[in-house]
C-alpha cells in the first residue's frame, strides 16, 4: 500500500505538533521516521490512523484520500498501528488481545493461519497465550502489540517505538521480526528514537524536528550523514568503539 502525506499539519489546541509534512512511502517499502522526543512522530502516525485530526493537508493511501474516514474504517481498509506504550487490553489474555486485532476480519481460516504466523514470529507469545495483558513483561507486551497489529492482516503497518524499553537482546529479536514482516511485502512506517535501528531496517529515512520535516533521504545516506550522526546516532564516539557501547551493540546484528 502506497502512503502519501501532502502538507500534513496537526495541532493540539494552540500547539502546532506537525507543520506541513510531506512524505511518500512507496508500496512494499519501509520508512523510518526519526527524531527527538516530542518531535511529532507519534502525532504523525495518529493522523494516519485518524485518532489525531488533520489541521491541514491530505493523506492518501493508494491514491485515495482518507479524509472523513473514521479510525475503524481505516483499520478495516488495511492500516494497522502498534501504538506507543503498547496499549494492550490489560484484562484480556494474550490470545484475546491478538484476536481483537482480527476483529474486522471474517475469514476464520486465514485468521487462524495468521495467528500461527504470529506465534512463529514471536514464540514467547505462544507460551504466554493464556496470561493477561497486564501481567506481561515490557518485551512481551511489545511483541503482543505488534502481533495484534499483524492480526489485522495490514497492508500498511505503523510501528511506534517498538524497541522502547526493551533489553538489548530482545531488540535484536524485534529487529529480526520487523525485517521478516517487511519481507512479506507490507508497507511499514517505523517510528523510532533508536535512529540507528530504524535506519538499519528502512529504505528511506525522514527526520522530524519540532513538528517539521528537516530531512528525507535513503536510510543509508542518513546513517552516514555526519550531521544526523551527531544529532541522532551519538557519533561522538569513534566508529570502531561504537560496537562496544550499548546502543551500538543493540544494532550491530541488524546493520547491513
Amino acid at each position: 500500500m502506497r502512503l502519501e502525506l501532502q502538507d500534513v499539519s496537526a495541532r493540539y489546541g494552540a500547539v502546532v505538533a506537525l507543520d506541513r509534512i510531506s512524505v511518500v512511502v512507496p508500496s512494499g517499502t519501509t520508512a523510518a521516521i526519526i527524531g527527538a522526543n516530542g518531535a511529532g512522530k507519534s502525532t504523525l502516525l495518529g493522523t494516519i490512523t485518524g485518532l489525531v485530526p488533520l489541521a491541514g493537508g491530505r493523506i492518501l493511501v493508494d491514491g485515495a484520500d482518507l479524509a472523513g474516514l473514521p479510525t475503524e474504517q481505516r483499520v478495516r481498509g488495511g492500516i494497522a498501528l502498534s501504538p506507543e506504550g503498547r496499549r494492550l487490553f490489560p484484562e484480556m489474555t494474550v490470545g484475546e488481545n491478538l484476536l481483537s486485532g482480527a476483529y474486522a476480519r471474517r475469514d476464520r481460516r486465514a485468521v487462524a493461519a495468521d495467528l500461527e504466523r504470529v506465534f512463529a514470529l514471536f514464540p514467547r507469545l505462544l507460551e504466554r497465550r493464556g496470561n493477561l495483558g497486564r501481567n506481561l513483561s515490557g518485551g512481551e507486551q511489545q511483541m503482543c502489540a505488534i502481533g495484534r497489529a499483524l492480526m489485522a492482516a495490514p497492508r500498511l503497518l505503523l510501528l511506534d517505538e517498538p524497541s522502547l524499553g526493551l533489553a538489548p537482546a530482545v531488540v535484536v529479536d524485534m529487529a529480526r521480526a520487523i525485517r521478516a514482516i517487511a519481507a512479506t511485502g507490507v508497507t511499514v512506517v517505523l517510528v523510532e528514537q533508536n535512529a540507528r535501528l530504524a535506519l538499519a531496517l528502512a529504505e528511506t529515512g525522514h527526520v522530524l524536528e519540532a513538528g517539521r520535516l528537516v530531512r528525507s533521504a535513503p536510510a543509508r545516506d542518513l546513517a552516514d550523514d555526519p550531521e544526523v550522526q551527531r544529532a541522532y546516532l551519538g557519533e561522538l564516539l569513534p566508529a570502531d568503539r561504537r560496537a562496544s557501547t550499548n546502543g551500538a551493540a543493540i544494532c550491530a546484528p541488524v546493520v547491513r
Partner: peptide, 18 residues
C-alpha cells in the same frame, strides 16, 4: 470481545476496527 475492548480502552478498540 468488542464490549470488553471498548470498556478497557475505547481508542485502542477503534484501532482494532471496533
Amino acid at each position: 470481545l468488542a464490549m470488553r475492548a471498548v470498556a478497557q480502552a475505547p481508542d485502542v478498540a477503534r484501532l482494532q476496527g471496533i
